[in-house]
Amino acid sequence: MAGPPQSKADYVYASLLDDLRNARISGGTPLRATEIAQRLGVSITPVREALRRLENDRLIRYEQHHGATVIDLSADALVEYYNVRAVVEGLGARLAAGRITEDELTRLWGMHERMVADEKAGRYELLGEQSREFHLAIADIGGPAFLGAHARAVRNNFPVPAHASLWLDPDQARNHLTVHEQLLKALKAGDGTTAERIMIDHVQFSGQYRLDRG
């Protein structure tokens, strides 16, 4: 059954979030509601609603006489973001190990195998988004009531530009696919302690990689 149609505000929000995630709009950029409305072919009202949501996500801020501006997050904020992700996604992995079903595990292996195939074919640009889906799928399994939604909210607070993804580095891509395989084996074994440790180390390594790249 198809889901409900996307509202215009949802469309604007998703479009702007995608622009931020892929660095098409950089930190410090002013966002003019009228310009966004014209570009996306909508009225000003859904744009304003989308901008309020982005403000709640702490991705933009309003300044007197300047309007909405994209927040340029600091290195300290980046470290905090990855530490929060490590805690939330680590907890998700630990809980998932205790409740994952065979069907869910099969689905995760399928996601992993598609990533392996793309890595072997050199399709590195596809791996970042697939890894995001893989991580969030584990969080959903571990905490279907609200942990998965919380993991998404954390990630949306600090979108990772595509060009900053470690998945574009062939050596890092291979290493992280190995880590994903180790994580899947821990989930299959029902070993929550190991799954949590692997996930925490994995996420924190990603943060350090991005920090080192500036």
Rank of each mutant, 00 (worst) to 15 (best):
V160P: 00
P144H: 07
K120F: 01
F205D: 13
N156I: 05
I36G: 06
G28E: 00
P46F: 04
N56I: 05
T178Y: 12
Q208L: 14
A173G: 14
R197K: 10
P5V: 09
V12L: 14
I141T: 12
K8H: 14
V47W: 09
W109V: 15
P144I: 06
E63R: 11
A93M: 02
S131I: 08
D10E: 15
S131G: 11
Y124M: 04
A164S: 15
F146E: 13
R123F: 03
V160G: 00
H180G: 01
V179S: 09
A93Q: 00
F146V: 09
A50H: 13
D201C: 09
N157P: 01
T106L: 14
D201Q: 14
G190H: 09
N83S: 11
P161Q: 07
D118L: 14
M111W: 13
D103C: 00
A173I: 06
L184N: 05
N157F: 04
A121S: 06
A153N: 10
L184K: 05
H112R: 13
G98D: 11
R197W: 05
P46C: 07
P170R: 05
V88A: 15
E196G: 04
A164T: 09
G190I: 11
Y62V: 13
G3R: 12
A164G: 02
R174P: 03
E113M: 10
M115W: 03
A151V: 00
E129I: 05
N175P: 04
